[in-house]
Design a protein around this nucleic acid. Structure first.
Lengths: 115, 115
DNA sequence: CCTTTCGACAACTAGTTGGTTGTCAGATCA
DNA sequence: TGATCTGACAACCAACTAGTTGTCGAAAGG
């Protein structure tokens, strides 16, 4: 019956999913270096169309990684990093890394104290 | 002409992509708790078929997060976490988080020293 | 005023994903 | 031996993704 696959607002999944695309990571890189950017600016440094850039930006916004920059005097809409947005992902990785290492330690000690 | 989209071995992308799926994160959780597991064991705790589990496992293996456990006496193939596999992702996030915070600090200080 | 630029949609395409069913050979076990 | 379980494929399907082209109205700029 092909299960529903509701995907009920999997925040962590959205963040990791957004980070999975190299183009999106590059956009974030630009944002980190320059603080704020816009669709036309990103289009200038990427080999894709304005529309594709806009789609990626809205994916990043959907994951909460990016938001509209206030001000916006000109006609271009500017975007900036959203404070704390990386935190859930960072802490998942941190916890996993710890459990990972713990697992390996236990494995190692079980190898060191055999039969 | 619909660009090639070669995706030339984007290791980081593979890892983040693997982590983007909740089912896969759950499998990793099991692995962290139990150290080693197998397709039948995972199938027992998930609402999906054995074949789907195998596919997820091979995605995790493709991202280098998981590997076949040595030994394997019985007929089930066991899998374990691959040491250090999380490192690239962890360090990307760490660096990004730093740049992120730096950006925000500079933003704040520019707000604190106005006109 | 006319041209360009920008944002917002919409429609389309090829390829990928997450899942299914089905099949089959080999290992395990009663 | 015969039933069952396992892993490994393959085919299929619906939904999603990353990109495209095209259109349109509003804002800026000459």
């Amino acid at each position: 019956m092909l299960r529903a696959r509701l995907r009920v607002s999997d925040q962590l999944g959205l963040v990791f999913g957004a980070l999975a695309d190299p183009t999106r990571r590059q956009m974030l890189g630009t944002l980190m270096r320059q603080g704020s950017t816009s669709v036309p600016a990103l289009t200038a440094e990427l080999p894709i169309t304005r529309q594709a850039v806009a789609k990626h930006l809205s994916a990043l916004a959907g994951a909460g990684l990016v938001e509209r920059a206030p001000g916006g005097s000109g006609r271009e809409i500017h975007y900036q990093l959203r404070p704390g947005a990386l935190e859930p992902a960072a802490s998942w990785i941190r916890e996993a890394d710890q459990a990972w290492a713990g697992r390996l330690d236990r494995l190692k000690s079980s190898l060191e104290s055999p039969r």
